[in-house]
Simulated assay, not measured.
Amino acid sequence: MIKKLGLDKVNKIMTVADRVVVVLVILISLSMIVLTPKVITKEVDAAKEVVVTTDNEEVYRHELLETEELERIEFDFSFEGEQYQGVLKMKDGEVRLDRLNKEISPLPIHHDMGWISQPYQIIVSMPIKMVVTVEAVQETETEQDIDVMTF
């Protein structure tokens, strides 16, 4: 069976150095999957907000709650001239979009995306172009944040 796959020819052609390079490339690729989100986002202790947008327009914004009890937060949005209601569930600093109306989002993919808590994570409902993200709250610049002023 090995001869059918041609693996014996590949083994004859590849040297030990070739195998080491292949293994290193695979290990580096797999490690970047884990490390990239952590390198891109800065871990800050600042407050976070949940932002819901529909068709690139902000529909709702709420502080991300760190409660131990499940919080249910309702928000209104419109789609094709009709009013609908969405539900965000928050617990332990994570948020989840509850199942939307089957008329506007037939498949529950957005609900199956689960809980998010970091800015690089998103929840998407494609039929209505709804996106739920987590954003770090930007502090306003004060005089203490300014080192030097020049004129």
Rank of each mutant, 00 (worst) to 15 (best):
V51F: 05
V95L: 04
P37N: 00
E63K: 11
D55Q: 09
K42P: 01
R72F: 06
R19S: 08
I104N: 08
M32C: 13
L97H: 01
I26T: 10
I26C: 09
V23N: 06
L97Y: 07
L100D: 03
E103Y: 05
K42D: 10
V52Y: 03
N101H: 10
K89S: 04
T41C: 11
F79Q: 06
F75R: 00
I109H: 11
M113L: 14
L27M: 13
T15S: 14
L64E: 03
H111E: 11
G93C: 05
V22K: 07
V50W: 07
M32Y: 11
A46R: 12
Q85T: 15
A47F: 09
E69P: 03
I26H: 02
K89N: 04
M113W: 00
E103V: 10
V23L: 15
D76A: 14
L107T: 14
K48I: 00
T67V: 05
E49I: 13
G114N: 05
G114V: 06
D76Y: 13
E74D: 09
E58A: 04
A17Q: 12
V95Q: 04
D45N: 09
N101L: 01
I13N: 01
S29E: 00
E71N: 14
S78E: 15
T67A: 10
E58S: 04
R72S: 10
F75H: 02
I33H: 06
E49R: 10
I73G: 02
L100P: 03
K91T: 01
R99A: 09
V20W: 09
D45F: 00
E49C: 07
R19T: 08
V44Q: 10
P108L: 07
E82P: 00
L64K: 02
E82R: 13
E103W: 05
A17V: 11
V23E: 08
G86D: 07
E69D: 15
L24I: 08
L65M: 05
M113F: 05
E68S: 15
V16R: 12
M32I: 13
V16A: 15
K38T: 12
G81C: 03
F77V: 01
S29P: 01
H111Q: 08
F79E: 03
I26G: 02
S105A: 15
V44C: 09
G81Y: 06
L70C: 02
E43G: 11
F75P: 02
E103P: 01
L100H: 03
T54Y: 05
E94W: 07
V50A: 08
E43Q: 14
V20C: 12
